[in-house]
Design a protein around this nucleic acid. Sequence first.
DNA 1: CTGTAACCGAGACGGTACGTCCTGTCTTAAG
DNA 2: CTTAAGACAGGACGTACCGTCTCGGTTACAG
Lengths: 194, 194, 194, 194
Amino acid sequence: MAESGRGRPRSERSRLAVLSATADLLIEGGLAAATVEAIAARAGVGKATIYKWWPSRGHVALESFFTRHAATATIVDRHESLADGLTAQLDALLDLMRNPPDAALLREIVALAQTDDELRAAFTEHWLRPRRTAVERVLRAAVERGEVRPDTDIAVTMDQLFGPLYYRLLMGHAPLDESLTAALLKQTLRAITR
Amino acid sequence: MAESGRGRPRSERSRLAVLSATADLLIEGGLAAATVEAIAARAGVGKATIYKWWPSRGHVALESFFTRHAATATIVDRHESLADGLTAQLDALLDLMRNPPDAALLREIVALAQTDDELRAAFTEHWLRPRRTAVERVLRAAVERGEVRPDTDIAVTMDQLFGPLYYRLLMGHAPLDESLTAALLKQTLRAITR
Amino acid sequence: MAESGRGRPRSERSRLAVLSATADLLIEGGLAAATVEAIAARAGVGKATIYKWWPSRGHVALESFFTRHAATATIVDRHESLADGLTAQLDALLDLMRNPPDAALLREIVALAQTDDELRAAFTEHWLRPRRTAVERVLRAAVERGEVRPDTDIAVTMDQLFGPLYYRLLMGHAPLDESLTAALLKQTLRAITR
Amino acid sequence: MAESGRGRPRSERSRLAVLSATADLLIEGGLAAATVEAIAARAGVGKATIYKWWPSRGHVALESFFTRHAATATIVDRHESLADGLTAQLDALLDLMRNPPDAALLREIVALAQTDDELRAAFTEHWLRPRRTAVERVLRAAVERGEVRPDTDIAVTMDQLFGPLYYRLLMGHAPLDESLTAALLKQTLRAITR
DNA sequence: CTGTAACCGAGACGGTACGTCCTGTCTTAAG
DNA sequence: CTTAAGACAGGACGTACCGTCTCGGTTACAG
């Protein structure tokens, strides 16, 4: 009953200015520099405009981060072997984590998400889920082919693949070096294949 | 000699008042409530005294947290079997993570540590390391007994045991239920035993 | 055009709340009690708002002080005789200095002004200048009437009228009693009239 | 009754170190830099030692200031003429006020004295009084010689001589130039001589 | 083609916490 | 009993952001 389309529409111009300003600030000074005030000033946008379209600065950063890394989520979609499929996903994530600016941002977003439930949900939904879904497809295909034991707990298996990467990223107790994904994969395959 | 013992000595009374006030605030409102200002006010202590002895509020919270959980680090010290030794450590950590106040605090400390290198180092050193050391001892003993393959990467194995717990704690993509440690253990043992 | 009138306009409500809170605090505890923090708290205003519109707490106190004493500056504006004109101005200032709260505040403002150039300039401009201008007009009129010697140094004459009052106020070496202005006037008239 | 000479005597070494450190700090950064903490640190003295022997930092500064300017108080002590005696005193004070570091310190001491009654008393007693006494002696001698009218208010006369100097020093509304004392003297003599 | 609703930039607002500085008091060990 | 050292409680400082608000002005659909 007339409710849509009335009034001035959202300015696409502002949306892009915000995301671009945020990306710049993130590069220059990390999430700490991407305050709402700084973003608004740099983008030539009112603070209220930001609050109107994003729930918090974390969401803006997240959207900016997603935009840059949309591709890596869906790397695996072909009839790859189990090992190749998993390797592709893990290496893509490891590469990202080994790029200092990306790693810093990822860490800071996870940090922010600990005190911002909405952000944590968004991160889980739009960052973790696609990657887990891709890996899950690979694993389920291998189960069907009989390569992987049918009683395997898929969720736990994925946690044992991804978990160690985030664990090292966040805690810094051990390096995220190139051999890591191979070692993870080796042990995991031994655990889940017949 | 001389140089030490000069001047008024540090007040143990204040130290305890700070830690006690912090513990109260953490319970009541989480890390967000444990501001330096609130701690100082509640403890009847000057802010400068806090800054003098702790580098940041995160360290105060960390010390308060450690004090409460000092015991769990060294649970395993007997001639336990491989499975029992690992289970004991993992379950102790899982129990802590399943206690909402502890879980919330742990998450917030990890979050703070992402933008406070000194805090991250302290957390790694005094929280992660003792637990990893205990598990490492169990694993090495099993290697020597011939239970575990000698070419096993101990560090990666520990990451596959602990990592998934922190991963689920921080991301919230899956529950931290009682069956988790069992599943982790089952897969890991299959991967590392002959 | 444009550029002015942009953004939310300054809140008159806040301005008045600040001045009123300051006046209260000055009465209750003198300038020492009128800290920026206390003013902000009492006025229900953010500290930043105070810093935005006043360079220092001294300026707030000064404005509050001015508001109360705006009238006394322009007492003399009629065709008064030389003696009456000067007496009116001096007595008005002496009355103020003999009122303990006003005297205390005046002393403290002068004190603050010694380490705050901007405040000293504001005090000179908005407190001293109007009073000196009024007296200067009286003196110049008397010069034109031939009552006062034409070679009289007007500035020094005013310093000899006002100076002793501030000198006694600030040093406290002698009382500011009612006979003071009469004595000052008597000697000064003897010095400057033919 | 044994009461004196017990225990360690006051350290003259410390007293001098404090005064010397204060003098240095006053030169370098004015009274603002001469905090009790800074003096103690520079002098290699405990803060408590300062508080034990001086009521406030203002008194330390005052003593340091006095030490440097002890001479000027008693310039006049010979059988000088009225004009010469007054001129000598006024010019000595004006010279001091025209020396920027001295002027700044004098202003700041007067400022501090507005909120420190003990300091104001000390300043009046040891700074103003000797100078006023010297001038008073000159004036009274002139009265006795019949040069000055016997009904002259000596105190007010001195206020009209000294007051304008402090007034200009503190308010800065007019310069403290060389002609000032001459003008003051000219008018004052016209007012008080027969 | 005019009214009106939703948007926009600018930026002021009340708040909260920050980390620093200084005060005046105190608690040691050394002399 | 004084001293140097220096820790202590307290309190104000001036700054930085937060998230909300109030302006004047713009945009575009609806009547």
